[in-house]
Nucleic acid binder design. Structure first.
Lengths: 345, 345
DNA sequence: CTGAAAGCGCTTACAG
DNA sequence: CTGAAAGCGCTTACAG
């Protein structure tokens, strides 16, 4: 319709109003340096032309990309079925979008690729900072971000967090205690735990915490095993637990996916849930309500955790100093997978 | 360690080598305009300094952002548990990343927000093009992208696709036929279908195709109902089907999530799968193997579809002309949810 | 307090 | 074939 396809720039506004581009910039950014009357004319003209700031040009002047990077290292087949990452991505995106910024995402099968991606992103000025999740034991990414000086927030960091990095820290103690108290309150005495690979830092931390608390509350050291997230390996780990001399009557799984895999295959495992074995999941998700029995789980607000990570990182970008926040606490949602236990102790 | 925190630029290289920035740019981009000897020195110096092109600066010169936008309009709670979007996002990201580009993602609950986000992205130069999914009947987004002239690819478009837009088109006919033939081959004669909301264009298309094919193959018009993706509504829609005068002995669900919801709650619905009702899912995912019985489903390669969408859009960006590709065909994976039907016809 | 000028890090049309 | 200059659309330090 004769509409210009070229997008209006501050030069167009400056020409129409008869001022310099600098004056336009000051007016549009609400800075002093231009009279009230001129400012009003500039704003009206910008409005009329439908001007919007060009993000790329603004970034080049600011030497800020306006993006925060997240590398997700999970096999793509797992990614689809594990709700955590999609929720985290959505949470981070919302928090950044609200602020006119964006999430730069990379998905890779190989954990070893992450550091290279960070390096490349940083060298090409594509990110202002990073969000790290699923910290490993002796995670090599920490050396990379420290060496390059990339502003970084660790989500779900241990306390104290890695030096020089911002962090959203979580104390698993209360959650572990709540899990044990819930199950002990139902009469369970032999409570085992299944978690993901041992090189995940949170798996190692929770292992230690669970052992200490179980000893305190139940008077015995619990059995804990690790497994990869693949379905057959989860079932194998569970079989191994159940084949022991004193099999557990309750098992705490470190994620929704692990627990759902087991409940879905209970018949094949030769167990009834919860009559033979109660099942509790560390992470709640709609998956826990898709299977029967529905799974008792700890809910937490991943959206809020993502927003906290962005808030903390943003503050570090502003001040240059690492910042800290607390993970939202988890709350227990009791469902059928831990109900009705009535075995003699 | 005394390392410069400032990233090297082509000006640094030009100074060291003793040439202009233009010459450095030509050399680094493999263009003619600089002698072989100079080119070699420039490349060596760039390598030694660890130079990487600044993406933002390059974008400003090119007037290209290097990003492709995707707006996902699903409630965040659903997003987590529905594998499709995470797989699509991963697929798009990989295809773009391989090319040095990136995916700009927005997540919103309200479909009506999408057009505004496109408008804002385009006005601020944040995207070079868009990927549209889940086209609605009379989708208002089409008018917006046409009005603004945004290069756009529609994934899963009808044939013929909307004028002026690139598309990855899929013909559901063979899949619908395969579903009906599989179920009819097992002896089923009353086959119903449950799909998502009626305003999804693909739901409407498949409805029409299913009705025609069922009439051809079974000699009767099948019952088809729509439902929102919420768990209780899916169950209600299924109950409604089963309460009819001639209840179906097999139901085709339009997604993995719909089918899994029903199989997970079969006991509550008062049915045994597959003895009373066979269940077939349009989209395969690991969810279909998490529940018992495992669900017969149509697999398709979402990664490949995402890559095809990016390839087609990239070609449009290069040539200015909309391009087309075919969706990868779906293949039937038979599992227990359609096995062992033995009712008298 | 106001305004013309330089600069962010690239690319490319244009004159020698 | 080679090289100095202008430009992409912004921001901001600096001189009046």
């Amino acid at each position: 319709m004769g509409e210009p396809t070229r997008r209006p720039t501050i030069a167009d506004i400056a020409r129409e109003v008869g001022v310099t581009k600098g004056a336009v910039s000051f007016a549009l950014n609400g800075r002093p340096g231009v009279s009230a009357a001129t400012r009003a004319r500039i704003l009206a003209t910008a409005e009329r032309l439908g001007w919007q700031p060009n993000t790329v040009a603004r970034s080049l002047s600011n030497l800020r990309s306006g993006s925060v990077g997240l590398v997700v290292t999970r096999p793509i087949s797992l990614l689809g079925v594990e709700p955590f990452y999609m929720r985290l991505i959505a949470g981070l995106e919302r928090a950044l979008h609200a602020d006119g910024r964006s999430l730069l995402l990379a998905v890779t099968d190989h954990a070893a690729d992450a550091a290279d991606i960070y390096r490349s992103w940083w060298a090409s000025g594509r990110v202002d900072g990073l969000v790290l999740t699923d910290l490993r034991v002796d995670d090599p990414r920490l050396a990379t971000v420290a060496e390059l000086g990339i502003p970084t927030v660790v989500l779900g960091a241990p306390s104290p967090p890695p030096p020089g990095l911002s962090a959203v820290v979580g104390d698993d103690g209360p959650t572990l205690r709540a899990a044990l108290e819930h199950l002990a309150g139902l009469g369970h005495r032999r409570i085992a735990r299944v978690s993901g690979p041992a090189d995940f830092a949170h798996a190692a931390r929770r292992n230690a915490g669970f052992a200490a608390l179980a000893t305190e509350l139940l008077g015995s050291t619990p059995t804990q095993v690790h497994t990869r997230y693949l379905s057959d390996q989860v079932l194998a780990a569970t079989r191994e637990l159940l084949a022991g001399p004193e099999p557990p009557t309750a098992i705490v799984y470190d994620s929704d996916l692990l627990a759902v895999t087991v409940v879905g295959s209970a018949t094949e495992l030769g167990i009834r849930v919860p009559a033979d074995v109660a099942v509790l999941a560390w992470d709640d998700s709609p998956l826990c309500e898709l299977v029967r029995p529905r799974i008792t789980a700890f809910s937490h607000d991943i959206d809020a955790d993502g927003a906290a990570a962005i808030a903390v990182l943003t503050e570090q970008l502003r001040t240059g100093v690492p910042q800290y926040a607390e993970l939202a606490p988890r709350t227990l949602t009791v469902r059928e997978s831990t109900a009705g236990y009535s075995k003699p102790v």
